[in-house]
Design a protein around this nucleic acid. Structure first.
Lengths: 198, 198
DNA sequence: TCAAAATTATACCGATTGGTATAATAACCA
DNA sequence: TGGTTATTATACCAATCGGTATAATTTTGA
């Protein structure tokens, strides 16, 4: 790992929470230099421009959440357990996630969904699609093994789960207190156990 | 209505959708002058500073949504109908709302929830609390008339409804297409008709 | 209608923005 | 170790930021 690669990684790690909190347009170059202790020369020696740092920071923030999600649903086991890993993950990770500025998808989506099509918006779209497809596949796998009701609309439940997670995060962060998120996560578990399985 | 009051209102109406789309920090004074055709003198003659314009614009954006919501649930009638007015409203208003930048609460919440406590954040908190309390009162009124199951937790359903609305708006705007919102609104109606009433 | 008052336009301020050219420094390999 | 290359720091750029002082212009009420 060359010096430049280490510096690049260092910049991303130090600035990712700032981008997530202040927004990708709302974070200035001086924010980056003070957060890293480096100068503009070091930033522009490792990135083309500010947008490239922002995109790398978004990828990093997204990767942190995705890694936790994948670690939870151990790639196998009963479908019911794999689905329940989703609310369980957000229940435990919320305090830490909130400290880093909240859900990067939610933040970046609100920032980018009115701007002209950008690389950031495309990343948000792709990550939401992947997340949705991931949940759909968990449900459909459970239907093939007979654990989940065959008549359940997998796409519909995936949409509901994601909306409940994001809506819950929003409310919890506005309130400064996680109970609203717990309510929506409880409802996800309730849907899994009363409408999808049994 | 004096000239200044008319100008003030004109500035608010012309700039409110811009604030909602670009964010309150992300909208510059030159955005305001080009949108209104006025100059800085006119802006600062009617507002203390940019933040005051931003707050007035948020109030205006919020008022548009609230007015539509109140108009829907005609202040009386069966509790079930009053509750169903919520998803019905968002179903019809979404295209127009999306054109103006989406839900002002969602947008302002994401922008303000990591910044130091600001007047905007306080407004967001208050508006969410009022919305929540409004739904709670609708449910409790229905419980008093016997229309709604007495054992239902009103606060819980209010939280779920708001989270489903906001999460649905988020997904629909990311997708550029309203079907995800329709899914979450369908679920609100489903909850009203299968868990709250009957 | 006319003058006083209220309103808007113009010109400017220092600070900060993203970005670049170049100089200084540190890393690396022969 | 020496010299070349890769990396970082410094100094600067034009453009824009929010905001102000003042001049020009409308409103407004007598």
């Amino acid at each position: 790992m060359s010096k430049a690669e280490r510096t690049r990684q260092f910049i991303i790690e130090q600035t990712a929470p700032i981008f997530n909190k202040q927004g990708y347009a709302g974070t200035s170059l001086s924010d980056l230099t003070t957060a890293t202790g480096l100068t503009k020369g070091a930033i522009y020696g490792n990135f083309e421009n500010k947008e490239e740092v922002a995109l790398a920071a978004f990828d990093y923030n997204l990767g942190l959440v995705q890694a936790g999600l994948r670690a939870g649903d151990a790639d196998s086991g009963p479908a019911r357990e794999q689905l329940l890993a989703l609310p369980r993950f957000y229940r435990t990770v919320f305090p830490e996630l909130s400290q880093c500025g909240g859900c990067p998808i939610l933040n970046a989506a609100v920032e980018a969904d009115d701007a002209p099509p950008s690389a950031l918006l495309q990343r948000v779209k792709d990550s939401v699609r992947r997340w949705h497809r991931h949940v759909v596949r968990l449900i459909e796998a459970g239907q093939r093994t007979g654990e989940i009701r065959p008549e359940a609309d997998a796409g519909r439940y995936a949409t509901l789960f994601i909306a409940l997670v994001e809506g819950g995060i929003l409310l919890a962060r506005v309130a400064g207190e996680p109970s609203a998120l717990h309510t929506t996560l409880d409802h996800i578990e309730h849907l899994i156990e009363t409408e999808l399985t049994e």
